[in-house]
Amino acid sequence: MSTDRTLAKAASQVYAANLLEASKAKGNILEITAEMEQIFSTVIGNVDLRNTLSDHAIPVTTRQSIASEVFAGYDEVLLAVFSVIVQRNDIMLLSRVAEAYLELAEQALGAIIIDVTTVVSLDDDLRRIIKDKYAAQLGSDVILREHVDKGILGGIILSTHGRRIDASVVSQLENARVTLSKRN
């Protein structure tokens, strides 16, 4: 079991390193990161797609073509690496590959990547405030990956390395709703 985990980690590192090298060459480390997370989260979240891509009864070429068609339009290097993952039937390693790539990308960039979600796009002042605050906290430069989501109604959500700060209006309203519902 431990050997399996070691092998899985090594394989994930290999996939992540190859992807990083390719993205470095193209100079789109951050963009690749975003697209990679989109593809991986889609596969992980869709049982049918995941089972299809990891089904031994389906020829490898067919599975690869399915992946290419589903994710057409994404970065070619990313799709090439994903195709190899499908070919080698390593779909279960997607989360590990993503984590490994993020670590390698941060090392390459010399900064920690923080995902920032807001209702409106950030302005320079807000970017500076966020960078200053979390660079001081984390002891490293910070790179922001900005996302706009009207669904959070307001406020901000910050996340990095699986840790999350939810200061959105929708979550605070949800907390208020739960508190009101429980009070009796």
């Binding site: 209702v119 409106v120 950030l122 906290q137």
Partner: peptide, 26 residues
């Protein structure tokens, strides 16, 4: 009310306010 009635500047103000109160990742 929050989603429809607030302007972008007001949203940014809210973000700034929440950032001041938000905790750390640690």
């Amino acid at each position: 009310v929050v989603g429809q009635d607030l302007s972008d500047a007001q949203h940014r103000k809210i973000v700034e306010h929440y950032l001041a109160e938000a905790g750390s990742f640690d």
